[in-house]
């Protein structure tokens, strides 16, 4: 690493932040705040354990990408050719190095197990989240009398569809970094509208929806012309301005306490549960 020059790893360099850091940070923040899988965890935990669990698990996750990211730095120090050896996919540097450094086979196998475990962890969270949203927000309103057995069958449908869509995206040949940055840029559009919906009683449903749509519609073309930094900042600014403007025009206030009186959306006919478990609905006024 020393041979690459003293400035390579300096935190004062801005190119990493402008190239992908800002987009990645905003996308990760949005993933945590808006991710259905995290909300399911929060609702599944006992009240006394929610803050403790998220603080420990969230904060102590930081060192993991810092550690795994070292493989990229090793790749730089060994002058790995991004186009020639990795096919233009920077995310391939880890597997490439592990399999080309002359490491013992058992370390290569251990690395494969770690990577697959991480993948399966994310995939099963996504599958659980998408099936929950589909059953609660689509099937239950359409078929309120559906029994548990039928709901279980319906819960599997979005998993299969999501798997097919993911496979198609992978088969297009798009590199992993491009997929991640594009999806993160798009999901940034929901960050501010969702935070406002959770904490500001004047946000309207129209403000939320149009803020998200405007953020993507305006920000993505800017991103394609001016790069990650300006694209992400435009998405963030546009998706903030629209819900704030519409919220300021809204005279009514949303009563968050009424969520406590919402009937459990997952309850089936004959179920006596009345205590609120807002499994999918977010507090959006209007």
């Amino acid at each position: 690493m020393a041979a690459q020059g003293h400035g390579l790893l300096s935190v004062t360099r801005g190119d990493a932040a402008t190239g992908f850091g800002v987009t990645l940070a905003l996308g990760l923040l949005t993933a945590t705040i808006a991710g259905q899988e995290y909300w399911q965890l929060a609702w599944g935990l006992r009240k006394k354990d929610v803050s403790r669990t998220f603080l420990w698990a969230g904060a102590w996750f930081y060192p993991i990408p810092i550690c795994i990211g070292l493989l990229g730095l090793v790749g730089i120090s060994l002058n790995v050719d991004l186009k020639g050896q990795l096919g233009g996919d920077a995310a391939a540097v880890g597997p490439y190095l592990i399999s080309h450094l002359g490491l013992p086979s058992w370390i290569v196998l251990a690395y494969v197990v770690v990577v697959l475990s991480a993948c399966y962890s994310v995939i099963d969270s996504a599958f659980t989240a998408i099936s929950s949203v589909f059953v609660v927000d689509v099937i239950k309103p359409l078929a309120p009398r559906a029994n548990e057995r039928a709901l279980l069958v319906w819960a599997k449908v979005p998993m299969v569809l999501a798997a097919i869509i993911a496979a198609v995206v992978v088969l297009t040949g798009a590199d992993f970094v491009t997929i991640v940055l594009t999806s993160y840029a798009i999901r940034t559009a929901i960050l501010v509208p969702l935070v406002l919906a959770l904490f500001w009683s004047r946000v309207t449903g129209a403000g939320f929806v149009w803020g998200t749509i405007a953020g993507i519609a305006v920000g993505m073309p800017v991103r394609s012309h001016y790069g990650e930094l300006w694209g992400s900042l435009t998405i963030l600014a546009t998706s903030s301005l629209v819900p704030v403007a519409l919220g300021l025009l809204n005279k009514s206030r949303y009563d968050f306490t009424q969520l406590r009186r919402v009937r459990d959306a997952t309850a089936t006919e004959g179920d006596t549960r009345e205590e609120a478990t807002p499994a999918a609905s977010q507090p959006i006024a209007g």
Binding site: K47, S51, A59
Partner: peptide, 20 residues
């Protein structure tokens, strides 16, 4: 039942963030 307790966890989280 029980109160949301997170004081010690918060200190641990601060240590983790500063360390990272």
């Amino acid at each position: 039942v029980g109160e949301d307790r997170f004081q010690r966890s918060f200190i641990g989280a601060v240590v983790a963030v500063i360390g990272s």
